[in-house]
Each structure stands twice: as C-alpha cells, then as structure tokens.
Amino acid sequence: MRVALQVTCVNDAMFPDTGKAVVRLLRRLGVDVDFPRAQTCCGQPMVNTGYLDEAVPVVRTFVDAFAGYDAIVTPSGSCAGSARHQHSIVAERSGDAVLQAAVAETGPRTYELSEFLVDVLGVTDVGAYFPHRVTYHPTCHSLRMLGVGDRPQRLLEAVRGLTLVDLPHATECCGFGGTFALKNADTSVAMGADKARHVRDTGAEVLVAGDNSCLMHIGGMLSRQRAGVRVMHLAEILASTEETEGESDGPVVGERAGDLA
C-alpha cells in the first residue's frame, strides 16, 4: 500500500512536530509513509472564506500531489473534511471536468489519522506510553463532517499510563472556525473562554485533539490564562513511547528550546 502524508499547511509551517509524530507512529506500525513534496494546502482557508476561484489552483495542486497513492493520511479532521466534502464545490466552480473527476476520486482516499489507524490498519493499541492525565476535545469537523466517532478515544484508552478524563460539553465548538477567529474575534474568544473553562474543570495536564488549528486557539487562551494545561495533537501522544517519555521531563510539544541548537 502506498501511503502519503498530507501534513497540512498549518502543521508544515507551525507544528512540524505533529508531522514528525505521524511519520514516527506510522513507521512503528510498519507503514512506509511518503511525503509528496508537491503538496501545499487543502484549500480550506480560501473556501471557507468564500474565495472559490482562488481555491481552484490550490485544489488542483492537491489532487496532483497525491495522485497514485492508495491512502492519503492527514492529522487533521478539518483538512480531511475539506478534501472529502469541499473539493467538489471548488471543482464544480472551475468548470473543469478533469478536475471534477480527479477530486471525486481523491476524496475517498483521504483519511483523518484516527480513521486510518482504526479502519485501514485495524489497530487501536498503537503501543504508546504517555503517563499523564489527558482530556480529549472532539473537533467539529472530525465529529460532524467526518463522523470519526469514538475512534480517537479508543486509541487514547489503549495508551499505557494515560488517564483519560471526560471533557464536559465536549461536543460544543471551541470557537476557532478558521477566519472566524479573526473576523468575529470577540465571539470566537467568548466561545473559547467557555471551552477553556471546561478543560480546566477536568484537572487534566494535557488537552488533546485531532486538529492543531483548534488547539492553537484553545491553547492560546489557556496559555494566556496561565492555566497550566498544555495542548497536544493526538498524533504526538500516540507516537510517545517509554523511550521518548524518558528523554524529556514532560510531553513533547512544539519546537523545544534545545532542539536545533
């Protein structure tokens, strides 16, 4: 099986550790994952803001970059949702029958990480070790657009050492919403404030989710509040083992100070 990583533009530029974690995790599970160099972005920022014409070349880049792979794995519910549900809108707009056909054929090959692990590889215990108290926020697109259901929880429950606590009002949106976070910053922050409060109420050390953009929003609020809760992508927890855990004094997140020195 030829498997491609769609790392997503946000992870590529802002959260490379998530991409590295996916690579490490999939290799550990025996998957030889490739990173098609021509990939850029799924086009969602343009589509969700209403710039459909602008999204056409981006979607074209997407389908070209991932042509020929059996599975496209992405650590983002939102980007998987974009490929599966929005690319057809863009392709329709382009009036290009070739693009429409390519999109129709690429979407179904695109999997969000937890879907790929559980449905395609058939694993829930990925051999991870993460001895921390964790709560999980199901992001809206993974929950409602993709319907990943309880796959992420099943994966987390199988992680050794991990204590998973329920997040109150878990299914409520965190308020990120792409450009919504900027265009309606006040409402976005009001929603995020409630989400952050529910996270704090769990007493968890770590908030985990399948989308770094939502985590950047909630984590940015928790950080501003000095709440003492860090955010981590699901992939990073699933990639953790006894070995990596021993190397640091806590969960690995972000670019750490000494990483590249």
């Binding site: 802002m14 940015g220 609020m221 709440a227 997140v253 670019e255």
Partner: peptide, 29 residues
C-alpha cells in the same frame, strides 16, 4: 506556552485580533 514553546503575547496591528486574548506560538525555525 505551557510545555516551553516560545510564543507572542499581545501584538499590535493585524495580529491584535488573535493575540488580544490568545497567545500565539512562535513559528518553528
């Protein structure tokens, strides 16, 4: 950020909308 990553607090200009209430992680090198 909790965990050690460098971040921006309040920024002026177009970033103010984000950083008014949310720290922004520094881009990785």
């Amino acid at each position: 950020l909790p965990g050690g990553r460098a971040a921006a607090g309040r920024l002026p200009g177009p970033a103010a909308g984000w950083t008014g209430a949310r720290d922004l992680p520094a881009p990785p090198e």
